[in-house]
Amino acid sequence: MELLKAQGIDKSYGEKQVLGGVSLLLREGELVCLLGVSGCGKTTLFNVLSGLEKPDSGQVFLSGREITGQPGQVSYMLQKDLLFPYRKVIDNVCLPLILGGMKKKEARQKAEPLFETFGLQGTQDKYPAQLSGGMRQRAALLRTYLSSHGAALLDEPFSALDTITKGMIHRWYLEVMEKIKLSTLFITHDIDEAVLLSDRIYILAGRPAAITHEIVVDTPRPRAEDFSLTQAFLDYKKQVISCLHLS
């Protein structure tokens, strides 16, 4: 089922057109990667999808309802974890619920059981400074999940982590996604990460940027631990690289 849909998004800053007719689709339960070189307009696109900026033309739909230019509908997670240092982890995680008008106690009750799912049990009353980088990112993800109406935008969420932590968090992430069924649109410039995690990959390129290719990674999930060492993985990777070069 269609969850998040963008149609013909144009966006310019002054003379410079950044996005030229971007259309994309995120179905329920899907994990879709948006791949492109730095500075190609990925973040602008996410700002439009999350409602932080209005496109010059084009529309954004969430479950068929138009949400163009309306923030607070699709949750958005940035590269920095942006946990507020002055709020305990539980209060950080509950923030979107409280902003949505929920009582503090009720919000805590809703968030509490998810701490285990996200591997954060026992951290509720800690401050973010007491968590390791990987844990902070997971807490940020939990907050993103709680602020979502089913769809989440992740802007290079794991790019600040070191390679080993990143590998661990990828495996963990896929496991959690199975459990919570969060539909995700994911920005990355890491090709391996894109192939490893996603159901489909969109290549965003050109000036102004548009979706030039769509690659379906139809290896079913859960994928084997050694998926990234298989021939199939390499084939996908080759395909992605050639698309990036062609465009």
Partner: peptide, 26 residues
Amino acid sequence: DPDAIRLMRSMGAGKRKIFRYVKLPS
């Protein structure tokens, strides 16, 4: 942090809530 403000806006927070939850504690 402007990114924190961006995050708050994406969660649907208006000026007042941004003031209360981000600017004041900062």
